[in-house]
Write a protein that binds this DNA or RNA. Structure first.
Lengths: 235, 235
DNA sequence: GAGTGGTCTAGACCACGGC
DNA sequence: CCGTGGTCTAGACCACTCA
């Protein structure tokens, strides 16, 4: 049998998945949860501690515990690790290049855990900072999870796909795995990003997950790193 | 005033810095620590919890709490994020290219928090996997912290600088920050890594820290990513 | 069986935010 | 002022390791 706090953690997660508590809103207080789950406050605390460490919940002293959201005022683009090397604030923009549906390849179907040849939505877009192209994104998501996804919705949210997934489809990105390589720009990429063919490009392949480690988006980001870098920390 | 458990955490850290407890060895039990610090076991527990989360201590149920070490049997190269894309186990090797002393540039002095033009040890080496060159490392550390560092010591430890820092100099690397870019190979790099000039190369700049966030090593890793990738997770 | 970390409880008090 | 999360305590019991 699992420890009690793990069971509580699971029940809280179920409430989040089930849509009982919504992103940005507060969940019941620790004392209330302790009563409704018939455990001590300390046990609820430990469960919430872990969820907070995973950035699924956010504690605010004196106010309550809140469901994490991509729609927060301050933090936009929670998953964007690319930052300017010279440190100036920059204006982000989003230009859609193509939008269409296609059949998933076997490899993609496997990583997204969907049936072979399922329909997926394929999106190509460019992120620009200060008018200059910076990242070419190729994004693929299962069509079944995103019925009603249109080019207009992408343009509307100005770059933050995850905000849109959350507010328009009730799907929350919680964590992601990335594989990073250095590659040479081919002619198409070079043209879109405005560099010479064979210029070095940072390739960032990402698989994003929602609750219970379900993969929900595959993405390939091709980034210019002349004046920017991908920042990370090791422990 | 800081919370009690933060004070306890600090006192435990001081014992680690002061060399009272050594890497790989166990520290006193929670109950003993609680008595000697005159606090409850729960408070010691919370302090240790945080240190364990930072990979500074390692808990082992039934055995005790241990000081983390780079000399662990299983985990070698704790900070190496580059892995094979095809997933086969590979044999790592280490070839020293150059070893010398020089004056720190102003920029380097600033990042390592040492005086301008202090003496630093500069090391160039290649890591090979399965006989093929994979990473060209340029490493710079303050000479004052590593008196007696010789080329022989580097060759001896076969690649793990951090093991050597720990066992030969009592300096423990705890965490690091990295900046990643894609760059083009210049002629020297191309020659050493065995690729064409202007091939795309993954550039990983790392600053490593010991206790209290003191920087102790600057490193630039130039990696081939044809068959390998840098792996990371986002939360 | 003795000793370690891991879980759980109950209750007290503190620090912060907002009415 | 009240309700929230944050800290601290004391004590009970469980789960694991090793002699």
């Amino acid at each position: 049998m699992n420890p009690l706090y793990v069971q509580i953690k699971k029940r809280i997660t179920e409430n989040l998945v089930g849509g009982l508590w919504h992103p940005g809103q507060s969940i019941p207080s620790e004392i209330e949860l302790a009563h409704s789950f018939n455990v001590s406050q300390g046990t609820v605390r430990k469960a919430i501690d872990e969820l907070a460490a995973e950035s699924i919940l956010i504690r605010r002293q004196g106010k309550g515990t809140f469901v994490a959201s991509h729609n927060e005022e301050n933090i936009q683009l929670r998953f964007l690790r690319l930052t300017s090397s010279i440190g100036n604030k920059e204006k982000l923009d989003n230009r859609l290049i193509s939008f269409g549906k296609e059949k998933a390849s076997n490899g993609l179907a496997k990583t997204l855990k969907i049936n072979n040849a399922s329909t997926i939505v394929s999106i190509k877009r460019v992120l620009t900072f200060n008018q200059k192209p910076l990242i070419l994104d190729l994004i693929k998501v299962p069509a079944s999870s995103f019925r009603g996804l249109t080019p207009e919705k992408i343009v509307e949210k100005k770059g933050s796909m995850y905000r849109m997934y959350e507010s328009d489809f009730g799907i929350q990105m919680l964590h992601a795995k990335e594989k990073i390589k250095a590659v040479a720009a081919n002619s198409e990429v070079a043209k879109i990003l405005g560099v010479k063919v064979n210029s070095p490009i940072l390739s960032v392949e990402r698989i994003s997950f929602t609750y219970d480690n379900s993969p929900i988006e595959w993405r390939l980001g091709l980034c210019l790193t002349e004046n920017h870098h991908y920042a990370t920390e090791l422990e």
